[in-house]
Design a protein around this nucleic acid. Sequence first.
DNA 1: AAGAAAATGAAATTCATTTTCAAAATGTTA
DNA 2: TAACATTTTGAAAATGAATTTCATTTTCTT
Lengths: 167, 167
Amino acid sequence: MLQFKGRKILKKKGVDSLQVSGKKERLRDFIKKMGFKSTRQRDIIATEFLKTICHITAEELYKKISRMNKEIGFTTVYRTLKLLAKSGLATERVFADNLTRYEPISTKEHHDHLICLACGGITEFEDTKIEKLQEAVAVEFGFMTITHKMELYGYCRKCKKHAPASE
Amino acid sequence: MLQFKGRKILKKKGVDSLQVSGKKERLRDFIKKMGFKSTRQRDIIATEFLKTICHITAEELYKKISRMNKEIGFTTVYRTLKLLAKSGLATERVFADNLTRYEPISTKEHHDHLICLACGGITEFEDTKIEKLQEAVAVEFGFMTITHKMELYGYCRKCKKHAPASE
DNA sequence: AAGAAAATGAAATTCATTTTCAAAATGTTA
DNA sequence: TAACATTTTGAAAATGAATTTCATTTTCTT
Ligand SMILES: [Zn+2]
Ligand SMILES: [Zn+2]
Ligand SMILES: [Zn+2]
Ligand SMILES: [Zn+2]
């Protein structure tokens, strides 16, 4: 395992960079198409965001960027995330803590979430069977589904032992 | 159909009143057990709330009550709904509009929601197959589920025709 | 370089939710 | 019933995330 670590990371880095730059191009296209302007700030924010794996809030991303760059304001981070969402490069999500989080779109078109009540960890999953049954429910009610939200809250493998009244 | 209307409503009213008074007793028990005090306001708010079928916000319930009774403040409505939730007689829910809504517990233990993006109508559904598959997903990830949220957003039968880009 | 349009960011605003606090109501005890 | 401790009430203030404002700066096109 250990001896492959270097290589794996190297490969992963390469892929990530490619993905990020591909997405950044998409953002630039979107900005141009909409008659907007490319700026240093948007570039930095988008780069930093697209590197993200997790579901990040505007505040968190702002703090992360602030560490290296004192000249980017919270408002711009906030607005750039909205822009990324509008351009289709980010997905806006609100979980039980009522904070607006953003995640870069990934290879998975759609996915749902498992959220740990102890550590706050978020795991993604896809289940086509469930998706089909959801659609069946919709049809049954004469409902035309546009989107849906499914979140399972509980304790992840690591936090299970800390679950209240589990012992 | 029409000739049964009177009778049906009468019967329904009877059942509702019984259910409401049963729940009000449960609230009184809870209040006593917790060392709290029963008040005129709590009684009025709980009665009005438990009659509710829909998913109501504190603001909405406050306005509804205000029409008849000018002496009940918003804060008390807000606090009583929280109290009902803590006592287990109400469920607190937040849908995509980010407003906190309350619904009285019903005979259905658990249910999920279909929410119309046009009229805001909320329909409840239960699907044991989905619930089982959700649990299977959780198990697969070594996750111990405590609760979950599943909401389908789209257009209900009545509003389908108004759905954007459907024609 | 000039001008038009958009972006920035600090500060202000919004808005639902929650808390504060002085006065009122409740329920227990004597 | 009166006194008392405790809780409740409700107007107002506080909170806090999300959003908007606006003067200044930057970008992009002539
Ligand atoms: Zn899904
Ligand atoms: Zn996700
Ligand atoms: Zn469910
Ligand atoms: Zn419901």
